[in-house]
């Protein structure tokens, strides 16, 4: 409510007279889509990165993917978002092949990747694609900026923002495209610990509001457990562990339940004894 008033105030300053909000940019959340990954393989040259990944993600689920560097988790994410093509295997959105689906998948990169020569608001409008010239586009972009708490920085250049603020703008840009799937490739990896916790809360909050399916790749086991409905571990290009995180939100870091799950994942990660936790998927 307050956000709405703020957005209007900002807008009034910029484009007068204000036009009636268009139905083209609905306020309703975009919602999620279920993901099915079957037998996915990908090799770069002779180096096999993914070696038959099978995965199912329910619509609106928050899936955390962890694994050591080079395990193929980023490649999996890039394929989900359509930036890379697999060598074989399928990616289905609600049982339709990715290419034929009208659902939107967005990737949030490790770096913010903002255009330094475009003001914050124009960077958010990049997320609108061809629709950024339509009436109501600016209002929509400003609303997304407000959703990440940066509406007051709309006219700033990205270079004056802090690392965390830049990543928030990147999140607003992704939200502006109304994604049904949001793939997050360690977007919080470069942030300091406190900013990181803020961002985790923000990501959880927009995910709950917008209802998209989220796939988060991270190195940080705690982050994976705090945010995920389920945690999967990828090792050498295959899924080796699936673990349901059946804890109420918002979750408290440092609670015994989280610590226990963390312990379980870490033991699996660092033991060669073949300890496999049967968390099972649903």
């Amino acid at each position: 409510m307050v956000d709405d008033i703020l957005v209007r105030a900002l807008l009034d300053e910029r484009l007068l007279p204000i036009e009636e909000p268009e139905a083209d940019f609905p306020e309703t959340p975009p919602g999620g889509v279920s993901l099915t990954v079957r037998g996915l393989t990908k090799a770069f040259g002779s180096h096999a990165v993914l070696q038959g990944v099978d995965l199912h993600v329910r619509s609106g689920e928050f899936l955390s993917v962890i694994g050591k560097s080079g395990s193929g988790k980023s490649t999996l994410l890039r394929i989900l978002a359509g930036l890379d093509e697999p060598n074989s295997g399928d990616v289905l959105f609600d049982s339709l092949p990715r290419a034929h689906s009208s659902h939107v998948a967005r990737l949030m990169f490790q770096e913010p990747r903002l255009l330094p020569w475009a003001r914050v608001i124009d960077n958010v409008e990049v997320g609108l694609g061809d629709r950024r010239y339509e009436a109501g586009a600016e209002r929509h972009a400003l609303a997304k900026l407000a959703a990440v708490g940066l509406e007051s920085r709309a006219r700033d250049w990205p270079s004056v923002l802090s690392g965390g603020q830049k990543q928030r703008v990147a999140l607003a840009r992704a939200l502006a495209s109304r994604p049904n799937v949001l793939a997050l490739d360690e977007p919080l990896g470069a942030l300091d610990a406190l900013t990181r916790m803020d961002m985790q809360t923000l990501v959880e909050q927009v995910w709950q509001e917008q209802g998209f399916t989220a796939v988060l790749v991270t190195h940080d086991v705690t982050e994976a457990i705090v945010l995920g409905d389920r945690v999967v571990l990828i090792e050498d290009g295959v899924v080796t562990l699936e673990l349901d995180v059946d804890l109420p939100r918002p979750r408290r870091r440092g609670s015994p339940e989280i610590a226990a799950l963390e312990e379980q994942v870490l033991r699996r990660l660092f033991s060669d004894a073949g300890y496999v936790a049967q968390g099972s998927s649903s």
């Binding site: 978002a81 359509g82 930036l83 967005r106 990737l107 990169f109 770096e111 990747r113 255009l115 475009a118 990049v126 997320g127 694609g129 061809d130 840009r173 495209s177």
Partner: peptide, 21 residues
């Protein structure tokens, strides 16, 4: 090249990439 990839992933056409990135 990261920015170019970003532009592409948000569906910019070739001419748009040229003009905006």
């Amino acid at each position: 090249p990261h920015l170019v990839e970003m532009g592409r992933s948000y569906g910019m056409s070739r001419s748009e990439l040229l003009a905006r990135v």
